Every structure is written in C-alpha cells, then in structure tokens.
Deep mutational scan, measured.
Amino acid sequence: MIIKINGKYYKIKKIEKNPNGKYTITTENGKKYEFKNVKIFSEEELK
C-alpha cells in the first residue's frame, strides 16, 4: 500500500488506529506519521 504525504509517495509498513480516532502510519523507512483522514493508494492505482 502507498500513502501520499506532502506530495511524496511512501510505502506503508503498518497502520494503527488510535483511540483518539487518528491513524498512525509507519512507512517502510521507519518514520511515523499521525493523521485524522487518510487516503491509501494501491500500487495499481498509481500506474
């Protein structure tokens, strides 16, 4: 799965839903981001 952050695309390693309704997304390079609204892309959609 792929996520778009600030115009760049990252591969997703893990998605966790937090009790506060936000999502914590861990990218393949180990960085964590927290979002309220998340749009996930499949690799097929990006081709």
Rank of each mutant, 00 (worst) to 15 (best):
K39S: 11
I25H: 00
I5P: 00
I15N: 00
N37R: 08
T26N: 02
F41Q: 07
K8V: 11
I12C: 04
P19L: 09
G21C: 03
G21M: 02
K31Q: 12
K32Q: 13
K36A: 15
K13H: 13
I40L: 11
E16W: 04
F35T: 10
E43R: 01
K14T: 14
N29K: 06
E45L: 10
K4A: 10
K31P: 03
N6R: 10
G7Q: 07
P19K: 12
I5F: 05
E34K: 05
P19M: 12
I25P: 00
K14L: 13
G7W: 01
Y10N: 03
N6A: 12
I40P: 05
I2R: 08
M1G: 08
F35Y: 07
I40M: 09
I40Y: 07
K22C: 15
I3K: 01
K39R: 13
Y33H: 05
T26D: 01
I3L: 08
N20Q: 05
S42A: 08
N18F: 07
E45R: 05
K13E: 09
F41K: 06
K11H: 09
E28C: 15
T24D: 04
E16Y: 05
I25W: 01
I40H: 06
I2T: 08
I5A: 06
K11T: 06
I25R: 00
T24L: 12
Y23K: 01
N18E: 09
I15W: 05
N20P: 04
Y10W: 07
T27R: 01
K31T: 11
K17L: 14
I2C: 14
N18M: 14
Y33R: 02
G21K: 02
Y23E: 00
T24N: 04
I40V: 09
T26R: 00
I40Q: 07
F35A: 10
K31D: 14
Y23W: 15
I3N: 00
K47I: 13
S42F: 15
E43V: 03
E16N: 03
G7E: 05
N6M: 09
I3F: 03
Y33L: 06
N18R: 08
K11I: 09
N6Y: 10
I12K: 00
Y33Q: 01
K22V: 13
L46M: 12
I25L: 05
V38C: 14
K14W: 11
P19V: 11
E45D: 14
N20C: 05
G30K: 01
Y23S: 02
K32A: 04
K13Y: 11
K11S: 07
F41S: 06
G7C: 08
L46K: 08
E34L: 06
N37S: 13
K22D: 11
N6P: 00
K22M: 14
Y23F: 14
K8Y: 08
F41R: 06
P19F: 06
N29A: 08
K14M: 12
E16P: 00
I40R: 04
I2E: 04
K13W: 09
G21V: 00
I40S: 05
K47F: 03
G30Y: 01
S42K: 08
I2K: 06
I2P: 01
K11V: 09
K47E: 13
G21N: 04
K11L: 07
T24I: 15
K4L: 14
V38Q: 05
G21Q: 02
K4V: 14
K32I: 14
N37E: 13
N37H: 14
N29F: 07
S42Y: 15
E16M: 06
G21T: 01
N20W: 04
I12T: 02
K36V: 14
K31M: 12
K31W: 10
K14S: 14
K36L: 13
I3H: 00
K8L: 09
K36F: 12
E34V: 12
I5V: 10
F41L: 12
T27C: 12
K32D: 05
T27M: 15
K13L: 14
Y23T: 06
K31C: 15
T26P: 00
F41Y: 12
K17N: 05
T26F: 10
K39F: 14
N20S: 08
